[in-house]
């Protein structure tokens, strides 16, 4: 590992370490699984392949079987698609909206800044799981609703983070120069501020992705997230919870999948090359 990271370091110009590389491999692996899931599942996702339910780990069913005797490995691989896909879409919307608004608030200042900050802070003080519960109760649960709800819940956090960074950049001389040149708000945000905060914002996107994965799993676990016959990892834990008292692998396998993804992303961010993380003014 040390040799490998040394080679990569020389090749790309970034200093990388073993933990960072390993966590990158885990995250990359789940990303590939999420894309390729339908082609790599050994059995059909909804196909009952075993007469025994909550089966143990065997060579034929590496992660055992679920409460109906379906292959757990196939279901976990397919679940990656929902967990990773929904969370990615939500984090993309949340961070795009939050970071744009945050930079705009910092550049505009004055009452627009105060109003936006107050409003989003207020939204932020609704506990996230509760917000999810209320929306699902009101609108019902479908994948687009889930994505939008998760995005709205995590926009204020992204806003606050980007605004704090942008306020610092905003005091720089080159911003004043650009203002005097008469540049538009869009130009100031996109070409002057964003390039100077992109590193920390990238790290923040990763952290927010972890929060979203955890919240989505929590909602699905409560039966309010991804609905049957589809199942993300949280829903897989829920449908197999009956096997808990026998210690069935079907309960722990999806939980471990979630843990590997979230811990992987966390470690990846902690071990990002200094050059990327500190790319701020």
């Amino acid at each position: 590992m040390a040799v490998l990271s040394h080679h990569i370091g020389r090749w790309t110009g970034y200093r990388v370490n073993g933990v960072g590389l390993a966590s990158f491999a885990v995250v990359l692996a789940w990303a590939i699984v999420a894309i390729a899931a339908p082609w790599i599942t050994p059995h059909g996702v909804g196909e009952i392949v075993d007469y025994d339910y909550f089966g143990p780990l065997t060579a034929k069913f590496p992660l055992g079987t679920d409460y109906l005797g379906r292959d757990m490995l196939s279901r976990v691989l397919m679940g990656a698609r929902y967990t990773v896909g929904i969370s990615l879409a939500a984090v993309a919307i949340a961070c795009f909206a939050g970071v744009s608004l945050g930079m705009a608030a910092a550049v505009m200042g004055g009452w627009a800044d105060s109003a936006l900050s107050r409003l989003l802070d207020a939204l932020n003080s609704i506990p996230s799981k509760l917000f999810g519960l209320v929306v699902v109760a009101g609108v019902g649960s479908s994948i687009p609703v889930l994505i939008m709800t998760l995005a709205i819940i995590y926009t204020p956090g992204a806003f606050r983070f980007a605004r704090a960074l942008a306020v610092n950049v905003n005091t720089m001389d080159f911003i004043t120069v650009a203002r005097i040149r008469g540049e538009s708000l869009g130009y100031l945000i996109g070409s002057e501020i964003l390039p100077n905060i992109v590193g920390p914002v990238f790290a923040d996107v990763g952290l927010r992705f972890v929060f979203i994965v955890l919240l989505l799993s929590g909602l699905s676990f409560l039966g309010l997230g991804v609905q049957p016959p589809n199942a993300d990892w949280g829903a897989l834990v829920r449908e197999n919870i009956g096997g808990l008292s026998f210690g069935a692998p079907a309960v722990m396998a999806p939980s471990l999948a979630i843990a590997s993804l979230t811990i992987g992303v966390n470690l990846l961010i902690d071990n990002l090359p200094q050059k990327i993380r500190d790319r701020s003014a």
Partner: peptide, 29 residues
């Protein structure tokens, strides 16, 4: 602590049930 923060609450709960109620049989589930 990082481990506990990075996993969903239900995983902490199911692990606790698995360890203390199923394997050790100390507590009711």
């Amino acid at each position: 602590t990082i481990g506990v923060i990075s996993v969903p609450e239900f995983m902490v709960a199911t692990s606790a049930v698995l360890i203390f109620a199923v394997w050790l049989k100390w507590l009711p589930a």
